[in-house]
Amino acid sequence: MKKATNFYDKKAGSRILLVYWYILFLIVAIVVLITTSLFYSGAIDVKEAEAKILHDKIVECLNNHGKLNSEIDYNDVNSLIKKCDFYLNAENMANYFFLIHIYDKNDDIIKTLKFGQPSIKLDCDMNTKRVTGRTIAGCSEREMFARQQNIFPEKSEEIKINIFTGVRK
């Protein structure tokens, strides 16, 4: 009689253990479901790649064999947009931003050209990827050096150009 009681106790114990197994599997299933959903819910992010292409295109049209392109009117950003063959206008200015600072050799700003939504730069400066795990805007910032003579006559021949580009779609 005593043995039989033990046997039934063991059986009951293994059943309880089995319930725990099922609960464990349920937890694993929920974790897989949530992780996979989070992984695939994000869009494929090409904003940074676009910002780099925009950057390269600006460098390409500002630079004329090491000299600053004299065909651009540096008082008018639309002249740069036209010269670079960009389709950037009021319709899509919320998606793109570029900021160009031209410095003389004393690091004084000679000219600033900008287009688009300045808050894109703020999104990049905040480094949202580190905080949220996702990029709100893709950005690129680099410097280039060039020479100029007649574009800014009273300024130094050697100039530094800082170009920042950002894309947020």
Partner: peptide
């Protein structure tokens, strides 16, 4: 099968072609 292959490929190719044209 958690993300529809068709939707994923649509997005991949749309962005790929846009980047090709941009560059």
């Amino acid at each position: 099968h958690s993300k529809n292959a068709a939707v994923l490929q649509e997005e991949i190719y749309a962005k790929k072609i846009a980047l090709i044209i941009d560059s």
